[in-house]
Computed example of a mutant assay.
Amino acid sequence: MVSGKQEGRIKAVLFDFDGTLSTLRAGWEETMVPLFKEAIIGSHQLTAEQSSELDQEIAGYIDQSTGIQTIYQMQWLAEKVKEKGWNPEVKGEWEYKAEYNRRLLLHVDERIRGLQTGKYRPGDFLIKGSEHILELLHQQAIPMYIASGTDHPDVVNEAEVLGVRHYFKEIAGAPVGRADCSKEKVISDLLAQGDLQSEGLAVIGDGKVEIRLAKENGALALGLASDEDKREGLNAVKVERLQAAGADWIAGDFTDTAQWMQWLGLDAELE
């Protein structure tokens, strides 16, 4: 999984957010799966075989679409409801997204309230070692960016409550009410900067979307196969996904600071 040490000093680092730095939204799949199944089936009665096949189809799609903007996942849902024809009530993708966000935010908002009241600490929802690596990059004046498929105001707010917002030169989430691909835009904008060559950019993420974009643009692609429940160690499913996307190197967390800094072509001595 290791392609070799980064040639030269990294000039900028682009992070994915959910699952890469933050675990505030951990468990989103458990929210999306039942929503998808309910919307597709409606009141229709499936056979055991049909139910099993649908479960596999939904799980397969969610796995391969991890990292894209939520609205695209909801477009798939709307098309699938029409295709199956079991549920006569076919809603638009924005309606499905609103219901998904409502359900997901029941859990996320509880965690945010806990952070605001002192019930939780930011470290309870950050991948282990992330605060240290961000501080080291900050000390070495490396510009850092976040690109996320989550709605922009939510990403900014969640970075704020986790105490990491100040590290980032720019945070780009999904534009509210628009189906733009924020990750592609941020990476393209970075590469368009006159003083930044593609080999000077590192992209760190737990989804195949950002890893694929990094490889397509000649950037260093570092996979973060995080176990979001433990916040450390490797998630085998993510390892396989990131390997398939072509990640140059894969880790489960940021605790091995020296190794991370080596791959970024930076000193790990500043503390």
Rank of each mutant, 00 (worst) to 15 (best):
M74L: 13
Q75R: 13
W76P: 00
W76A: 02
L77Y: 02
A78R: 09
E79Q: 11
K80Y: 05
E83F: 04
G85N: 03
N87V: 08
N87W: 13
E89D: 14
K97N: 10
A98W: 02
A98M: 02
A98Q: 07
E99M: 10
E99Q: 14
Y100C: 08
R102V: 01
R103Y: 03
R103E: 09
L106G: 00
L106D: 02
L106E: 12
H107N: 06
H107W: 05
V108D: 05
D109G: 09
R111H: 07
R111D: 06
R113D: 14
R113K: 15
G114P: 02
G114A: 14
L115Y: 14
T117L: 11
K119G: 01
K119H: 13
K119Q: 15
Y120F: 15
Y120K: 10
Y120I: 09
R121S: 14
R121H: 14
R121P: 00
P122H: 11
P122Y: 11
I127Q: 01
I127A: 01
I127L: 08
K128Y: 02
G129P: 01
S130L: 09
S130E: 06
E131W: 00
H132T: 14
I133A: 04
L136C: 03
H138K: 10
H138C: 06
H138G: 04
Q139E: 08
A141E: 13
P143Q: 08
Y145P: 01
Y145E: 11
I146L: 03
S148I: 09
S148L: 09
G149H: 02
G149L: 06
T150C: 02
H152F: 05
H152R: 06
P153V: 09
V156M: 05
V156D: 10
N157R: 15
E158G: 01
E158V: 03
A159F: 06
E160S: 11
V161A: 07
V161C: 10
V161I: 08
G163H: 06
V164Y: 01
R165A: 15
H166D: 10
H166V: 01
H166Q: 12
Y167N: 04
K169M: 13
I171S: 09
I171D: 12
G173E: 12
G173W: 14
A174S: 14
A174C: 14
P175D: 02
G177H: 04
R178N: 01
R178F: 09
R178T: 03
D180V: 05
E184W: 04
E184D: 13
V186M: 13
V186T: 13
I187L: 15
S188H: 05
S188F: 00
S188I: 00
D189C: 04
L191M: 13
A192S: 15
Q193D: 11
G194C: 03
S198E: 07
G200C: 07
A202N: 06
V203N: 05
I204P: 04
I204N: 04
G205S: 13
G205M: 12
G207C: 13
G207W: 11
G207E: 11
